Simulated scan of single mutants.
Amino acid sequence: MRRLSFLGLVALILIVFSAPALSAPFDEVIQRWTKTKEFQDGGDYLKVTATYYSTEYIEALVQSEADKNLWTADELELHKYQLLKTLNLDETIPVKFEFEVKGASMHMAPFGDQVWIWLGGKRYKPADYDPRFNFKVSDRIEGMVHFPRFDEKTGRDLLEATKSVKVELSGGIYPAIRSIGVDFIWDVAKDDPERLFAGQSGARLEMDRLIKRLARLNREKDELWSAS
């Protein structure tokens, strides 16, 4: 009996102390795609964190939630579908921003003119962003910014053959960075967004895209009929 109790205690200790090791890969993924920079100028302090929603990051995020909540395979696919739909990954490049300020308040309006993404040597403004970024920030705020995934004129996938992505913030948003600005660079050479669209969630998203495309074609057809 004592031997069994001792073995049980050893097993419990191994489980407890192995938990951080098991979570290490997820932590490494988070660190790889989440970047933070801090700036201080007198009494003004700014901390900016940017997270690029790569394939690896999204897969790790979904798997982490599945492990914590003991989801079935179907539940995991459902969550993945909902997340991908929210991120609008088939049309945009999502980046999450977190700002923390102390001292002077931060003013970023219009935010669409304060942030850009560099792809293939060209600069692009966001297609959409959290509207709260247009309001004064005196403590902390976080939200999503969606950059265009495709070239507006040619329809070309902007991530195709792209080895790195740079996101840039104007220095005019805060006194501590007025003369320098802020940028974040990620290596995306091995990132494959299309991998996310495999499986049940991908099939559902493809159906959503087809329905959306048909609705757009019908709308254009109606406009042509109205014009004639």
Rank of each mutant, 00 (worst) to 15 (best):
225 W>T: 06
98 E>D: 15
37 K>T: 06
10 V>F: 11
206 E>Q: 08
9 L>S: 14
28 E>R: 14
228 S>D: 12
7 L>C: 11
110 P>M: 14
33 W>N: 03
115 V>W: 03
85 K>H: 15
111 F>I: 05
51 T>V: 10
17 F>Q: 07
130 D>I: 11
160 E>G: 01
188 V>R: 03
192 D>Y: 06
88 N>K: 11
83 L>D: 00
50 A>S: 04
19 A>I: 08
109 A>R: 11
16 V>L: 13
119 L>Y: 01
223 E>Y: 07
145 V>W: 02
159 L>M: 13
157 D>S: 03
12 L>N: 06
209 R>N: 07
8 G>A: 05
190 K>Q: 13
22 L>M: 07
23 S>A: 11
43 G>C: 02
127 A>N: 04
160 E>P: 00
156 R>D: 10
27 D>M: 06
171 G>A: 02
50 A>N: 01
108 M>S: 15
98 E>A: 15
118 W>R: 08
43 G>Y: 15
152 E>H: 01
44 D>V: 05
163 K>Y: 13
214 L>W: 09
185 I>P: 01
226 S>Y: 07
227 A>G: 00
155 G>R: 15
211 I>S: 09
1 M>C: 09
171 G>D: 00
60 A>K: 12
222 D>H: 12
164 S>R: 14
119 L>W: 03
223 E>A: 14
108 M>N: 08
206 E>M: 11
210 L>E: 15
161 A>H: 10
208 D>L: 05
22 L>F: 13
45 Y>S: 13
88 N>P: 00
64 S>E: 10
78 L>A: 04
44 D>H: 08
57 Y>Q: 06
74 D>H: 09
67 D>W: 07
5 S>I: 06
30 I>N: 06
119 L>V: 10
60 A>C: 02
21 A>I: 11
196 L>S: 05
152 E>K: 12
147 F>P: 01
197 F>C: 02
180 I>G: 06
198 A>R: 14
31 Q>G: 14
128 D>G: 04
28 E>K: 12
3 R>K: 11
107 H>I: 07
158 L>M: 04
109 A>G: 00
71 W>Q: 12
161 A>R: 12
94 P>N: 09
13 I>W: 10
164 S>Q: 13
226 S>I: 06
